[in-house]
Amino acid sequence: MTLLSVENLTVAFPGRRGTVNAIENVSLSISPGEILGMVGESGAGKSMTGAAIIGLIEPPGRIAEGRILLDGQRIDTLRPEEMRRIRGRQIGAIFQDPLTSLNPVLTVGEQLIETIQTHLKLSHSEARERAIDWLRRVGIPAPEARIDTYPHQYSGGMRQRVVIALALCAEPRLVIADEPTTALDVSVQAQIIALLRRLARETGVAVILVTHDMGVIAETADRVAVMYAGRIVEIGQVADVLKNPRHPYTSGLMASIPRIGPRPEVLPQIEGAMPRPGNRPEGCAFAPRCPHPVERCTRVRPALEGTATASVACHLTEEVPA
């Protein structure tokens, strides 16, 4: 059963020098309760995919191709008011920086209660009960007292817990967590990830976890999609992808994770930089940085091919039968 599926999604930004595609032909799907990790370096299109799903692409950007289906219903063509009702209620979002995600002049309770009452038919006191309950579930101590305080009275980690409560309080079935731990201390990161995983299990909410941290993916996600230059280059079960990366970019990412143990002289890294949108080569976008490109790589862009559980976009894997 599929909760959300994205088919051949292309997001285009018209610019002075012609239209630039931020993401191209992105296809993915997610089932209820599943955690799908999305990794890739900055500018690969991870966040843009999330913004497209929740219908908040900044103008003049727009969906140029493809469709997004929630329960088999198209949501990318809905009118703004219909899409607003889906946001928060069906699809929630968690943003990167908890310090700036909360409105400084409204109490935590006011923000929670307003969100709950927007989507659920509850009285103010019922909504308040629910808000306190959510603060307790995300691990805020003494929620009855803390609900009437302002965001600046919380620490960074506590604020991210409040952000999670806000994203989940109207009980969406899918939540897009865009780098939810990047702005936090390492010790707090682990707590937040554990909290997300626990809430996903308890509520059955599906999570698209956008990150550039392979460690977080390994610990949390069921499946992982690796993005490079606006495209998904590899997607599959986390264990398979991490153990046997098939795309050379994924291997490069795995190799550049520092390990505990004897230190190598130089931390392996992928030479060169990711091409910017609008400046991508004709063939495979990774070809200029690939350690073993073949002639075809610079001419023909490889398609994402494979089975339902594991796909990869690389000419090298096509020749070697899996």
């Binding site: 929740i54 908040l56 607003r84 009702r85 889906i86 946001r87 928060g88 209620r89 929630g92 979002a93 943003f95 920086d97 700036t100 995600s101 909360l102 409105n103 400084p104 002049v105 409204l106 307003e114 969100t115 927007t118 989507h119 952000v163 806000l166 994203a167 109207a170």
Partner: peptide
């Protein structure tokens, strides 16, 4: 970000403009 987050929670634009943005 807090306005973007308010949008992502599906709050009506009247509330976003006048309750969330205007006071700030």
């Amino acid at each position: 970000d807090y306005i973007k987050f308010a949008r992502a929670r599906g709050l009506p634009s009247r509330s976003i403009n006048f309750r969330h943005a205007l006071r700030n």
